[in-house]
Computed example of a mutant assay.
Amino acid sequence: MTEADEVAEGHGHGAPMVEKITDFEVLEIALRELAIEKGLFTAEDHRRYTEHVEQLQPAAGSRFVAKAWLDPAFRQLALDDPIAACREVGVDWLEPTGFGTPSDFTALEVLEDTPTLHHVIVCTLCSCYPRPLLGMSPEWYRTPNYRRRIVRWPRQVLAEFGLYLPEDVEIRVEDSNSKHRFMVLPVRPDGTDGWTEDQLAEIVTRDCLIGVALPKVGVTTNAARPVHPAIRPAPGY
């Protein structure tokens, strides 16, 4: 074994060249290399897709909502054909491959809130999420505590996010899956008359698009998440 090999294995004087990886990462590498070997896609295809995913941001979803608030025709298109509406704000669910990806090209539904109805989205199985519109999902969205509890005690879980809804507001939880994704179209807040699309988009945060927050004048970032014990935590977590 050479000195370089010893360092890579952690036996030399230097730091290990490769950090310990998880079983999931080993599986991903094996599947990726096998797919490339079998000609399902090339290493260049994988690089382009990875770069595409990493640049996705929830700003696309924010623009989508702002446009729906201002343009009644676009709002109706968003409800009737969300994929077509996405193209009008520069989001093509067929990218970057030209035919979409198994994890992203799905049926998309826009959930319109009303003064008496509030939607919140979850994926109880894993972490299905409308990435072309919202970017990568936040860590808490993927946790068992959120996934298991939001469907059973939505009002209490939303309160843990700082969202307290009146009792006369119905809360409807929509469960995403591998072929069906959702995005919330929240109610436009008071005090925004005369605002431009850019101004409105600034107050539509990622959390508003998931349904764990409401748009508010002056709030342009996701609220900090203090760590505290969950009410009725999922067993074992």
Rank of each mutant, 00 (worst) to 15 (best):
Y146F: 13
V122P: 00
V184L: 03
W140D: 00
S176I: 05
F182A: 01
W153N: 15
E139Q: 13
E197T: 06
S137G: 12
C126F: 11
V151Y: 02
L134P: 01
V151W: 03
T143R: 07
K179Q: 15
T196M: 06
P166I: 12
L163M: 13
R155M: 07
G162E: 03
G194H: 09
R188Y: 06
S176W: 03
T192W: 03
S137P: 03
D190F: 12
L125W: 14
Y129T: 02
L125F: 14
A159W: 11
R152M: 12
Y164S: 15
E174I: 11
V169Y: 14
L165C: 09
T143C: 06
V173L: 11
P130A: 12
D190W: 13
C128M: 07
I121A: 05
W140A: 01
F161E: 03
P189S: 10
M183C: 04
P130L: 09
R147Q: 04
S127G: 11
D193V: 09
N177D: 14
F161T: 02
D193P: 02
L163V: 09
C128P: 00
W153K: 15
E174V: 12
S137Y: 10
R148E: 12
V184M: 04
S137F: 09
L133N: 01
G135E: 02
G194I: 04
F182D: 00
E139W: 09
R188V: 02
L125E: 15
T143H: 06
T192S: 06
L185M: 12
L185Y: 01
W153M: 14
L133I: 06
R148F: 11
R142S: 06
G135D: 00
P138C: 01
D175A: 11
S137W: 09
R188L: 04
L163A: 07
W153I: 15
S176G: 11
V187A: 07
R147C: 01
L163E: 05
C128E: 00
R152T: 13
K179E: 15
I171L: 10
N177E: 12
E167C: 13
R155T: 03
P186W: 04
P132R: 05
P144L: 08
R155V: 04
L134N: 01
